[in-house]
Nucleic acid binder design. Structure first.
Lengths: 225, 225
DNA sequence: CACTCATTCAAGTAATCACTTGAATACAAG
DNA sequence: CTTGTATTCAAGTGATTACTTGAATGAGTG
């Protein structure tokens, strides 16, 4: 009675998911996939790992059923297998933020002082969008924008931020830039560039994954003209 | 610019948490700790592992700051370090449930057919408690009951279920038994015993951790007389 | 058909990990 | 101070893992 081996087999199943979350490279891939589907080479390039290594990590995620694939000609697109995977990733990140004293220091090394660009939170941003007092720009690569962006946002990939600042940016209105989330540098770089040119810009820390988890509306497709 | 090594260090921090979730034994310990604090030997006994092994797993959880300790004389009590840890554990379990096709089969081996005791869900149980049409029993060990139980529940540890069924159980009213959660056998064993004696009993799948996460009220301390 | 491109597979290496056994610490009670 | 109890530490073993390199698949294209 109360078969120990059977109980262990249950926890082994849970551990399959846990193990998949146990490598930094894999978490980076999950974080990227939270922005939408991508082929292997794009993921490898973004995460700066060899293609073979990325492929292998993706196989591990596939075995744990955290990701799914779709074939289009030679390319294989990977995507997160379910919304619960994003929630799990966000829960893991929240726990790391609340428990690991070393994280803020390490994050600061990569992102700089968190308060430099007076980041604004979700509720405050939602209020300002509602009031129409801000222009929201999505500084991720265009493909990610197309797969889901904040309702009303304009796509301005970081490599185009200088051109946009010169030609199209509003001179008076406040600009809010966001990217993949709290650990992505793009919005920070964008705001730095905009401020250098005397524009009023701030950073929103959250990305599409966080917005969606908070129940806010996400649009897909290219920007309206 | 865009220092790859610094970015990697961030994901290494997240992976500390992930790695800690990568061993079945550790997940079982977390599941037990979700019921409240316990000393090492009690945890080892419940999880049926050697004390040295349990201690080592707990050191890993401690290094990942998922657990905390409190000393009382010779005994060291471990407990989950924050509510976010329970949420992370529940998120991991939900993902496993939605993604791993093998889990239901493995769970059935340990728990039997999930529908045998017509389990009732949270909302239904809350409604029946409100209406006063049920008696709720908590069949976990008494220490766990004292550290948190469903408001209004009576403590009837599984080893006392026979005596209780004979001497105290209501003959007509429906009895709802719960234990540690969906993967705990105690409530199943209790309901089987009660039904064998002709009493009206059903099982609630959720435990205290799930109730608390759902925002329901939890009481502490011994039963009122 | 050869040729290219994206992805996966296979083999090898160094590192990490879970578990065991046996000894060491740390506190309490006599 | 000795004895007992709870926990941790240390060393050793077999298994697993992350990454690399180089070859193999498999789906287009000229």
């Amino acid at each position: 009675m109360s078969d120990h081996a059977a109980k262990q087999r249950i926890y082994e199943q849970f551990a399959r998911i846990g193990k998949a979350l146990g490598a930094p490279g894999r978490l980076e891939l999950i974080d990227l996939l939270a922005q939408g589907e991508r082929p292997v080479d794009a993921l490898a390039k973004e995460a700066q790992m060899s293609i073979a290594n990325a492929s292998q990590h993706l196989q591990v995620l596939l075995a744990a059923r955290l990701v799914d694939t779709r074939r289009d000609a030679q390319r294989i697109y990977y995507r997160l297998a379910a919304p619960s995977v994003i929630e799990l990733w966000l829960a893991l990140r929240r726990t790391a933020e609340s428990q690991l004293a070393e994280l803020p220091g390490v994050a600061r090394e990569y992102l700089g002082d968190p308060d430099t660009f007076e980041p604004i939170d979700r509720d405050e941003l939602a209020r300002r969008i509602e009031a129409g007092t801000v222009v929201v720009i999505d500084v991720r690569p265009a493909e990610e924008f197309e797969q889901g962006h904040l309702a009303g946002a304009v796509s301005v990939p970081v490599d185009e931020i200088k051109r946009w600042a010169r030609d199209e940016a509003p001179k008076r209105k406040q600009i809010v830039a966001y990217c993949r989330g709290p650990y992505c540098v793009y919005a920070i770089e964008a705001v730095a560039e905009l401020k250098k040119r005397g524009l009023r810009a701030v950073r929103a820390e959250d990305g599409v994954a966080e917005w969606r988890a908070a129940g806010l509306s996400i649009e897909t497709g290219k920007s309206a003209p």
